[in-house]
Structures are given as C-alpha cells and as structure tokens.
C-alpha cells in the first residue's frame, strides 16, 4: 500500500513539474534567427515543416492540420505556426487572438503531382492548365475562391458525371484550395481538378486523406494525381513529376497577439 501511495505521489509531482514548465509566453519574431529555440507548429509533410527543420534551430511539432496547430498555439502549447499564406489568413480571420507576422520567408509554387511514369496524364494536365490560363477560366477560378470582397462563390462541377473515373487525392484542410463546405469537399484545387477531368473526358473522384500520405498513395497507385496546394520542392521531385505551377504562395508565421 505504501509503495502504491509513493508511486502516486511521484506521478502527481511529475505532473506539477510538467505543468509548471508551460506558460503562454509572448514571442517577438523579426527574423529567421528569432525562431530558434521556439516550439513551432506545422502541418505534417508540408514545406513549412521542411523549411523550419532546415533553416531554424527550433522544436518542430507536426500536426494533422494547420487548424490543429493553430488551436494548440491559442492554448499555449506552441509559440508559432508556420503555414501557407492563404490558409493563414483564414485562421487569423477566425481567431481574434492570433495574428500573421509581417515577415516572409520563402516563395514557393503549387503544382499538380503525378507518378513519374504517367507522362500522358502529365501532358493532359499541363494542357488543361495552359488552356485555363489562356481562356480566362483560371482568372474566373481565382475570382471565385479568392474574391476581393471575401464572398466565395463555388463554381458548378464541370467534369462529366458518368463514365470512367480519375482519382484525385487531396487533404481538405487547406482553405481555400481544398476544404469542406457542408458535406462537400470544395476549393480552388477541386474545381481545377474538375477541369482536368473534363479535359480527359472522365469523372472526378476525390479522395480525402492526410497530407503526409498523399505521395505514398500516389506511388502505390491508389490515386492518379495530387491536387493539394502542394509546393514544388527538389525532394518531392525525386519521387513524383510535377505539372506546370498554377499558384505562387509564401510561408508565413502566425503568433498569439
């Protein structure tokens, strides 16, 4: 009985020590160096994670979505979140106590990923992207999902609704590129994928999974292409083939106000 009591006391003591460590400290970040020594939240498998690991001497903590990281930031579990610009804006809009720092680290460009040997699909995608940029569909798309007045109007599905399917993998936690509206997965990448499917004359099947599982799923053949706001990086290019880029973004830092 004494042993059990002692053990219990030890656990409680540990608990208090742990609890004492964490407090919501106010951080000031003016440069990359200021991130050193901080706890930084990122979405698992994103360029934000890679960038933090390669360029800072910080503790990088990976979450399943940017929103989870933001929630932990609010709660004081981490000091900052590094994430793509547009989802960051959305997070800050919804959380009064968070802000985006006026600091830009890396420029990067989103593209669609396909298996390296799938050149036919890659050509078809590139053709669609080029056409969209030419005929104004691309501008309509940015207008729809990144409107100046903030009111998103989701375009109608343009892909065929019967016949053969093409499988697109995404991670619907990356506003406004892919997110859920009611029970539907919508977003910039989704509509663009519909154009791609239309160009192939196929139905579009959307498969929603963890971001860090997308490349493995593509290589395993369970999806045909990835449209998930995925930035082109040399590491990824070793594994997959990227289409022409379709959007330029930046990584930003979110902190508590």
């Amino acid at each position: 009985m004494k042993k059990i009591t002692a053990l219990f006391m030890a656990v409680v003591l540990c608990a208090l020590t742990f609890a004492g460590c964490a407090e919501k400290k106010q951080v000031t970040i003016n440069s990359t160096e200021d991130l050193n020594g901080l706890k930084i939240g990122v979405q698992s498998g994103t360029t934000g994670q890679t960038w933090c690991e390669e360029n800072t001497d910080s503790e990088v903590i990976t979450f399943k979505s940017g929103m989870d990281a933001a929630l932990d930031l609010k709660n004081g579990g981490i000091d900052a979140v590094v994430i793509d610009e547009l989802p960051a804006q959305r997070i800050v809009e919804q959380n009064d106590d968070l802000k985006i720092l006026d600091l830009r680290f890396t420029k990067e460009e989103y593209a669609i990923a396909v298996r390296k040997d799938d050149t036919a699909l890659l050509e078809s995608i590139n053709k669609t992207i080029a056409e969209m940029k030419e005929n104004g569909d691309y501008d309509k798309l940015t207008g729809a999902f990144m409107p100046a007045d903030g009111n998103i109007v989701i375009p109608e599905n343009v892909a065929p609704t019967s016949g053969e399917t093409v499988k697109m993998g995404t991670n619907a936690a990356f506003w406004p590129f892919e997110y859920t509206e009611g029970s539907d997965i919508v977003g910039f990448d989704i509509t663009m994928s519909q154009y791609i499917a239309k160009g192939m004359g196929k139905q579009l099947e959307i498969i929603n999974m963890e971001f860090d599982s997308l490349i493995a799923a593509l290589q395993a053949g369970s999806i045909d292409f990835i449209a998930a706001g995925m930035s082109v990086t040399p590491e990824r290019e070793e594994e997959v083939a990227f289409s022409d880029t379709y959007y330029a973004s930046e990584q930003v830092v979110i902190v508590r106000k």
Binding site: C14, A15, F18, A19, C21, A22, E23, K24, I61, D68, L71, D72, K74, N75, G76, G77
Partner: peptide, 15 residues
C-alpha cells in the same frame, strides 16, 4: 483532453 479540457492550462502535451 488536449484541445478542450486542459487547453487553458498550457500543459505539456506528453503529460
């Protein structure tokens, strides 16, 4: 536990 109950305590995630 993490995001709701202990959210305001800022407790270590391992704990």
């Amino acid at each position: 536990f993490y995001f709701v109950i202990f959210a305001s305590f800022g407790m270590d995630r391992h704990l």
